[in-house]
Computed example of a mutant assay.
Amino acid sequence: MAHQSYELKAEARERVGKGSARAIRRNGKVPAVIYGEKQPPLAITLPYKEVFHRIHAGGFMTTIASVEVNGEKIQVLPRDYQLDPVRGFAMHVDFLRIGRNTIVTVNVPVHFLNEEDAPGIKRGGVLNVVRHEVEFACPATAIPDYIEVDLTGMDIGDSVHISAVKLPEGAKPTITDRDFTIATVAAPAGLKAEESEEAAEAEEEQEEEAEGGDEE
């Protein structure tokens, strides 16, 4: 399910700091750093167009890249990036160096299947998504693109929890102290109103019966 890895050609940079970073951007490149695996941080520059394309193509933060620096290819995973708040330009990227046993924490999107086979939705119920993403700890080399939640058979008032979802091999939710909810099928507004009225009427009847018993 993982996105296909890609390659980036980089240049090592000796100077760091705001002034150096501005000069790099003026030359059509993006400053970046590679860290992790108990090695000193490596400051690099990357082609702006390539970085911009990768960021906006989807899956940037969950796809391993091979960065070539001075003839050496380094396996990395993007961990953070900054965009210009006004113009949206890529300003900086942080990469984590990936080793054989590197475990990372990532947010994985949730995809919902078979809404048409959910009786509650057929009756006008509304899919209430509690979590659009779920945070997992997983091997950096096996990051899932998404997890799938099957809505077949779900009626109004039903919920689907993480325990009901088939998880990718090696992926473990970071929330371990409870069987958390992914989504519910909620009643439509009209039905909620009817249920509230019915509940109110039932309560009035109970009170009247109780008062009648007291009078006797």
Rank of each mutant, 00 (worst) to 15 (best):
P78W: 06
P78C: 06
R79P: 00
Y81S: 09
Q82K: 14
Q82E: 13
D84L: 09
D84R: 11
P85K: 14
P85I: 12
V86M: 13
G88H: 14
G88F: 08
F89L: 08
A90P: 01
M91D: 01
M91I: 11
V93M: 09
D94N: 15
L96Y: 04
G99L: 12
G99A: 12
G99H: 06
R100D: 07
I103W: 01
I103P: 00
V104M: 11
T105R: 15
N107S: 15
N107D: 14
V108D: 04
H111V: 10
F112N: 08
L113N: 02
N114P: 03
A118T: 02
P119V: 08
P119N: 09
I121N: 00
K122V: 02
R123F: 00
L127H: 00
V130C: 07
H132W: 07
E133S: 12
E133Q: 15
V134C: 07
E135V: 11
E135R: 15
F136N: 05
C138P: 04
A140K: 09
T141L: 14
A142N: 09
A142G: 04
I143C: 03
P144I: 01
P144K: 06
Y146M: 12
E148L: 10
L151N: 01
L151Y: 03
G153D: 07
G153W: 03
G153A: 12
M154T: 03
G157L: 10
D158I: 10
D158V: 10
D158G: 12
S159Q: 11
V160Y: 05
H161G: 01
I162A: 14
V165C: 08
V165Q: 06
V165P: 03
V165K: 09
K166R: 13
K166W: 00
